[in-house]
Design a protein around this nucleic acid. Structure first.
Length: 455
RNA sequence: GAGAUCGUAGCUCAGUUGGUUAGAGCGUCAGUUUGUGGCACUGAAGGCCGGGGGUUCGAGACCCCUCGGUCUCCCCA
């Protein structure tokens, strides 16, 4: 029989991995909580129309759609046959699919804001830790099911929030001991560049091209810009823009010379300047202005973030930004928001590679009670319950088998203590407590077991 | 969506220019050892060589198709 497999890009997590992942989730959750964010959970699936058109053309293709039930109903056959042509053209048709798996946490959040608008106290701060699904081709650091940890604030235009979010990035990665670089930019700066070179409608073309700078190099970027219809003069301006270097303040000064005449540009520059002044040096040390940073999602309008682990060859491990009118798409205009996201699966890979997981994440069973027969097991069982009630993880070997086997079981599961109650101990109301790490053992009265130091 | 590469035991992999009955290590199970584990030794189980077709006297190996894994591009966490 063929062995059952897993859908492409999905994974099982064995106990140790689950524990390590929980360590990351908890670190992030704790920081979110201390910054006053409240948890939210939304369904795995949304109505397809909630999701479609929110992530750009590429994004739409990567949404996992759910086939409608009841297609076998004869009454629906004619409609389905008529719609089949559209499906084959790659369109989404209600008679075939009306629901889809969540693609990220931001759009479901926006939908939540829109559906509950009257009842939320603004500014509304929520965090959300849930899996999302993308029909992407899996590759290194990239899966079809992965978790996002988002924190968003809606209902305020204050840059204080951006500052706070940058601070969250800083404290989470400090806590996890991952050296990172937090790149910042503003969509307004990119917008200003577009205005200066060929008009606002060129913004997408320009950002897509310059975003690739560190991957394909300056010459290729210039080539791509020309291909996208920019004239040589405009390409030269962009080249100057890309060559901006130095410290954050130096870069901003150079940028001013280039797009400082433009209103949008001035605003964008001010946003970054504010962050760099507002935050303490310990945080700004990890902040790096990067004017090539674009971020794919097309709803961003202001400051954008991206976090990269230093010295690890993996994509970004977090990103986010300001979106001034996200819920407008759902009929609730003028709700500004800012959000950030942590890519847990990649953070895991980084911690693993850098060996940054603490050793004690893998705490399992503390005590194994040996099974020495029915009467003995009965005594062991009730003693074990007293330990469990005190919060000490304990288990009893279910079968009466050779010592050898019970010891090996404890070894494999890394259980530090064995408690042995045989016929002799049963008669004396004692038990043998053996430390498997040290090999030492002692005899305790049954009553003394609870007070034993199991650490 | 485009491309590269790999599929042999539960896992990691050998397997010569195509040549008898496909191997190793680890793991599993049993025994040495029925109240003291990790070590050691002995033995066993475990394979339609991913699937289908073709070339050949002969295919794990070569060719075609297909499925799956991994990686790259696009895009993204």
């Amino acid at each position: 029989m063929a062995k059952p497999g897993l859908p492409q890009g999905t994974r099982d997590f064995a106990s140790e991995t689950v524990r390590k992942r929980a360590y990351i989730f908890n670190s992030i959750r704790n920081v979110f909580e201390t910054y006053g964010f409240q948890p939210l959970e939304t369904p795995a699936m949304e109505n397809l129309e909630t999701l479609m058109g929110k992530y750009g053309e590429e994004g739409d293709k990567l949404i996992f759609k759910i086939l409608n039930n009841g297609l076998d109903n004869p009454a629906k056959h004619e409609a389905a046959r008529n719609d089949l042509e559209k499906v084959l053209e790659g369109k989404s048709v209600k008679s075939f699919t009306e629901r889809a798996l969540r693609y990220d946490l931001t759009i479901p959040f926006a939908r939540y804001i829109a559906t509950n608008f009257g009842q939320l106290t603004m500014p509304f701060k929520r965090y959300q830790i849930q899996p999302v699904w993308r029909a992407d081709r899996p590759q290194k650091g990239r899966y079809r099911e992965f978790y996002q940890c988002d924190a968003d604030v809606v209902g305020s235009k204050s840059l204080l929030i951006e500052a706070e979010l940058a601070n969250i990035y800083h404290s989470v990665f400090k806590q996890l001991r991952v050296p990172v670089e937090i790149k910042i930019n503003s969509r307004k700066i990119l917008g200003a560049l577009a205005v200066v070179c060929g008009g606002p409608d060129k913004m997408m073309d320009i950002t897509i091209a310059i975003d690739k700078l560190d991957k394909i190099g300056l010459d290729k970027v210039k080539e791509e810009l020309a291909d996208r219809g920019l004239n040589p003069e405009q390409v030269t301006i962009i080249e100057r823009y890309l060559l901006i270097s130095g410290s954050n303040t130096e870069r901003l000064a150079e940028l001013k010379a280039l797009i400082g005449e433009n209103d949008l540009g001035i605003h964008g520059i001010r946003e970054l300047e504010f962050l760099l002044q507002f935050l303490p040096a310990t945080v700004t040390d990890t902040l790096v202005t990067d004017f090539t940073l674009a971020r794919g999602l097309n709803y961003y309008t202001g400051v954008i973030f991206e976090v990269k682990a230093i010295d690890v060859q993996i994509g970004s491990i977090g990103g986010g930004g300001r979106y001034d009118d996200l819920t407008g798409l759902f009929g609730v205009p003028n709700v500004p928001g800012v959000g950030i996201s942590f890519g847990v699966d990649r953070i895991y890979d980084v911690l693993d590679e850098l060996k940054l997981f603490p050793e004690n994440v893998a705490t399992g069973t503390k005590v194994l009670f040996f099974n020495m027969g029915e009467e003995e097991a009965k005594a062991a069982f009730s003693l074990m319950q007293t330990l469990r009630e005190k919060g000490i993880a304990a288990e009893i070997y279910p079968d009466q088998v050779k010592f050898d086997k019970q010891f090996k079981y404890a070894d494999k599961k890394d259980i530090p203590y064995a408690v042995i109650i045989g016929s002799e101990e049963l008669a004396n109301e004692t038990c043998v407590v053996k430390s498997l790490k040290q090999g030492s053992q002692q005899i305790l009265a049954h009553a003394g077991l609870v007070d034993f130091d199991w650490s």
